[in-house]
Design a protein around this nucleic acid. Sequence first.
DNA 1: CCCCTATCAGGAATGATTCTTATTTAAGGA
DNA 2: TCCTTAAATAAGAATCATTCCTGATAGGGG
Lengths: 130, 130
Amino acid sequence: MGAARKSVKRDAILALLRDVHCHPTAEWVHGELRKTYPNLSLGTVYRNLRLLADRGLIRSVGVVDGQERFDGNLAAHGHFICKNCGAVLDVELPREGLESLADGPHGHVTGVEIRMTGLCRTCLDKDIQP
Amino acid sequence: MGAARKSVKRDAILALLRDVHCHPTAEWVHGELRKTYPNLSLGTVYRNLRLLADRGLIRSVGVVDGQERFDGNLAAHGHFICKNCGAVLDVELPREGLESLADGPHGHVTGVEIRMTGLCRTCLDKDIQP
DNA sequence: CCCCTATCAGGAATGATTCTTATTTAAGGA
DNA sequence: TCCTTAAATAAGAATCATTCCTGATAGGGG
């Protein structure tokens, strides 16, 4: 028993997450992979995104505008989230201080997520800052 | 026109968030304040939590187990979220390095949120680490 | 070749959040 | 104090991302 079986769909989802530079939603992944697998169901995408995230092969960026965003890039980095358009951008993090966050007195830390919110450059150019 | 009107319910919600040490959901706030205001509606809680967060009087910790968590403590601190029981704990942050995160090349940063995930001490004592 | 189990599609169900509507209430001026 | 107006509210309906359920299919070990 034990480990999961090989799964074409799951491998495709993981490969897509790794290839892509953005931070997709389940629905986006579904729409994208439907081009290759026309009968891919949305439920399968949700199930596998959850499964991959639980295994640590991808990670969740959190919920933005009501939809969960995922990231196939496991390297240490933070995220900038635009409050106006919902864009998610990668942010380089200084090496310093990161290790100091990695373990606390509260329990066993497995992940550190740093997210910044604000207005992205594109929205700054269009809108008056709300 | 102009600024918002005084609101007994909203003031109560803000006061509760400030008094409490935990990181409540809308539903918890509703249940708690219903003891004082039996006809407080859940919609009112949602609307005012959103409004208070938009004004920066409280802040959102993000969605944990499908429900948004709020925080009345505006002082700079991070959060530790237990993957097992969903507990949210405050985490002291080192002053160093925080300012270096405060502004990036991606736009105008208004907030920095640092969240750590893992297993809290209570769950570590009970469960084998999954 | 036969089970056992994982995967999958399709569709129904769930549940947090938001929206709508009618009603109430606060605040400022007459 | 009374009136006017717009914000605030309650109640319940509506939305919509996510999960759950069911039946079907297929892979791998024995």
